[in-house]
Amino acid sequence: MVKLSVHNHIRKLRFDRDEMTQQQLAEKVGVTRQTIVAIEKGNYSPSLELAFRIALVFGSPLEEVFYIELPEA
């Protein structure tokens, strides 16, 4: 089975939204700032529920916030 690499545009979206801090985003979605840091760095893949909550904060579809890179065949 191929391991998928999940990436995101959270950092860019935060800055596009009046330079929202990681702490502000964390408070809006109900997690710690450290969780947001780990997600942004790609060290942690959020649950589906958390991914949707993050997308809702930005008013963006899920696929505009998170994306995968498929390995080359």
Rank of each mutant, 00 (worst) to 15 (best):
A26H: 06
A26V: 03
L62S: 09
V31E: 06
D16Y: 09
S45I: 14
S45Q: 14
E49R: 04
G30C: 09
I54F: 02
A55W: 01
R53T: 04
P46F: 07
L25K: 11
E27Y: 06
G59F: 03
N43D: 13
L13W: 12
V29G: 02
N8R: 01
F15A: 07
V57G: 06
E64G: 12
R14G: 04
R17K: 15
Y44M: 03
I36Y: 08
D18I: 07
Q34T: 12
R33P: 07
Y67P: 05
V37S: 14
D18E: 15
P46I: 05
A38M: 11
V57P: 04
A38F: 01
E49S: 10
E19I: 05
A26S: 12
I36S: 03
A38Y: 05
K12L: 13
K12G: 03
R17M: 13
I39R: 02
L56S: 14
A55N: 03
R11G: 02
R17D: 11
F52R: 10
A38V: 00
S47Q: 01
Q24H: 07
S47R: 03
N8F: 02
R14L: 15
F15H: 14
T32H: 07
R14S: 04
L62W: 07
F15Y: 14
V65L: 09
P61L: 10
Y67V: 08
L48H: 09
L48F: 13
R17G: 00
V65R: 02
T21N: 01
E19L: 11
E49V: 08
R53E: 14
N43M: 10
D18V: 06
M20V: 11
T21G: 10
V31W: 04
G59E: 13
N8L: 06
Q22S: 05
D18A: 15
E27Q: 13
Q24I: 06
L62T: 07
F58M: 08
L50I: 00
I39T: 05
E63H: 15
M20Y: 09
T32F: 05
R11N: 09
V65A: 10
K41L: 14
L56A: 15
L25Q: 09
I68Q: 09
P46S: 06
L25H: 10
D16I: 10
L25T: 08
Q22D: 04
V57L: 06
V57E: 12
E63K: 11
E64K: 15
Q24Y: 02
E27G: 00
P61H: 14
V37A: 10
S45D: 13
I39C: 02
A26F: 06
V65Y: 09
Y67W: 12
G59C: 10
A51L: 03
N8K: 01
E40K: 07
L56P: 00
V57H: 06
F58Y: 07
E49P: 00
E27P: 00
V57I: 13
R11C: 01
R17S: 14
S47C: 04
T21R: 11
E19V: 09
P46E: 03
F66I: 03
Q34A: 14
G42Q: 03
P61A: 13
A38E: 12
A26I: 08
G30S: 11
D16R: 12
F52I: 13
I39Y: 04
K12H: 08
L13V: 08
V29Y: 01
T32E: 09
T32W: 02
A26W: 03
P61F: 10
A55P: 04
S45W: 00
F52C: 09
L48A: 15
I68G: 05
V57C: 13
K28E: 14
F58N: 02
Q24P: 00
R11Y: 12
L13Q: 12
Q23T: 15
